[in-house]
Design a protein around this nucleic acid. Structure first.
Length: 505
RNA sequence: GCCCCCUUAGCUCAUCGGAAGAGCAGCCGGCUUUUAACCGGUUGAGGGAGGUUCGAUUCCUCCAGGGGGCACCA
């Protein structure tokens, strides 16, 4: 039967109930127990009042509410499994207890409806814990069918686009996303307990800096100007260090105008934390402390391996990159690593590392000391200014964390921004323009500090063993479907904006 | 942006160059301790647009969406 006929059939039931004065929505009902709690009450009752053989169990009275997931009507009796957040429980609906009027409602129940049931917890002849209903109230008539009751929702696209269907038909999925929340809660608690202050900083920015990524553009009608969605949190948190806070962090969404992949979602959750009078060595300790909070099944117990990038490349590729610094392009060529000709030694070294070393790093490893020219916000090493005090934590070939001793020398910072600006002028759209407002803040004086960024989604992927970032996002970004795009364009009307006038690259 | 694969009923799955089949859900009837309840009856489908063919769901082209890979990705 086509979807619209199934829909019409349920709507017809709503009207029939209404004709008899029975509402299908907006009915107040106060559950006194969850499904899990009601089961527990039955267990306790049976322990304290062991039932005689053949005698019916009459446990405590409860009121439960949930979605109808299974229906087994058989004439004057009907068994249904109701589901709430905690689980499922059978309710036992009898015509002789409910009366004709209510039992007519039972006869019209469909899978997916939400009902409230009051009665004593008991156990049926087959031993199934149940609520023997003294009353039943229809709370919601579902107009659309839930997914197939046995196989659940299989279609990946539907599970991503209509996550509510995925969740309501899969307790495993509900538990899975609860672990994501638990992980984030643990990160927050850990930072709070270390004296970090959680803050909120702007998402709409005139210059989206703090990283290298093409930003999303938004239009601000009142000011007739475009603004950008942030690509990182960094620069505002550093302004707060200037302002005098010693330890700040934010867990929030950042946006990068890039393609989709199992490891990339255009919007994702970043944790950034900054600590005054600390270095990247302190950030390493902090990273270990944070990761172990969420790390359960995986072997993520610190201490982790610590190696310098130059040493890793030397060991794994047999190339002494420090020796061949001025010859790095040739070193890459020798290793069959393709590098754009305009890459300097540092960028070339990073390319070699990312292609040849990083994918092989499975056990948690801190990779230390990145080239300075690819790390414009990090402090140079005193002993070798070609490198900065920066590390990434690599687990299973993925970057989980990125941290450095923050650059607080405003003169060096300006010089590095200007070098970056040259790359931008040469066509690197992912390099942000110089942020004078940020430089001014640094010029007021930012204490030496360590900073840490953690890709929360990737952390959750590692902790839960998921291979796709879509599986740790409740609502992953999906390509808009045509019908909704047309409708949205119509709803919003047409506003000429700089972003619309700009050529799409 | 490129390459490969996928799209059959509301859901879960079959089949096929020659009348598209099932389970669940739905509808009608039966059933007062069921468990993916059961029994009888019954409605309903090839993502979209073209092309090849006597005939296309099947073969071809394009489009859309999805999955994987590449590119991109501090």
């Amino acid at each position: 039967m086509p979807a619209d006929e199934l829909f019409a059939e349920r709507l017809r039931k709503v009207e029939q109930l209404a004709a008899r004065g029975i509402p299908s929505y907006g009915v107040d009902f106060r559950p006194t127990a969850t499904m899990t709690r009601a089961r527990a009450l039955l267990d306790v009752h049976e322990r304290e009042h062991p039932p005689e053989v053949g005698e019916p169990v009459v446990g405590p009275e409860v009121a439960v509410a949930g979605r109808v997931m299974q229906l087994r009507p058989q004439g004057g009796v009907c068994f249904a499994h109701l589901q709430d957040e905690t689980g499922r429980l059978q309710v036992w609906l009898r015509e002789d207890r409910l009366g004709d009027a209510t039992y007519d409602v039972v006869r019209s129940l469909d899978l997916g409806d939400i009902v409230g049931v009051s009665g004593h917890v008991t156990r049926t002849r087959r031993g199934e814990p149940s609520v023997l209903a003294d009353s039943m109230t229809l709370l919601v008539k579902a107009l659309r069918q839930p997914p197939e009751k046995f196989h659940g929702l299989q279609d990946l696209e539907t599970r991503y686009r209509k996550r509510y269907l995925d969740l309501l038909s899969s307790g495993a999925q509900r538990r899975h996303f609860a672990t994501r929340t638990a992980t984030i809660r643990a990160l927050r608690a850990s930072l709070d307990s270390r004296g970090f202050m959680e803050v909120e900083t702007p998402i709409l920015q005139p210059i989206a800096g703090g990283g290298a990524a093409v930003p999303f553009v938004a239009h601000w009608n009142a000011l007739h100007t475009d603004v950008y969605l942030r690509i990182a949190i960094e620069l505002h948190l550093k302004r707060l260090l200037v302002g005098g806070y010693a330890r700040v962090y934010e867990i929030g969404r950042v946006f990068r105008n890039e393609g989709l992949s199992p490891k990339h979602n255009p919007e994702f959750t970043m944790l950034e934390a900054y600590q005054a009078y600390a270095t990247y060595d302190d950030m390493r300790a902090l990273t270990e402390a944070l990761i172990v909070v969420g790390g359960r099944s995986l072997d993520l117990h610190p201490p982790y391996a610590v190696t310098r990038m130059a040493d890793l490349v030397h060991e794994r590729c047999g190339v002494d990159v420090l020796d061949r610094w001025d010859d790095m392009q040739q070193a890459a060529a020798d290793l069959n690593v393709e590098v754009p000709a305009d890459h300097g030694p540092g960028a070339t070294l990073l390319e070699i590392y990312e292609q040849r070393v990083e994918p092989e790093l499975w056990a948690p490893t801190f990779v230390l000391d990145y080239p300075a020219d690819v790390s414009p916000l990090a402090r140079r090493r005193v002993d070798d200014p070609r490198f900065v005090e920066r590390f990434e934590l690599i687990v299973a070939g993925r970057e989980l964390a990125n941290a450095f001793s923050e650059l607080n020398d405003p003169v060096d910072q300006r010089r590095r921004f200007e070098e970056q600006a040259q790359l931008r002028a040469a066509g690197a759209a992912e390099i942000p323009p110089i942020d004078e407002d940020f430089l001014e803040a640094i010029e007021v004086g930012m204490p030496p500090a360590g900073g840490l960024g953690v890709g929360v989604d990737r952390l959750v992927m590692v902790l839960t063993g998921k291979m796709s970032i879509r599986d740790v996002l409740l609502f992953p970004t999906m390509r808009p479907q045509h019908r909704s795009v047309a409708a949205a364009a119509h709803d919003y009307g047409h506003h000429e904006s700089p972003s619309e006038r700009a050529e799409d690259p």
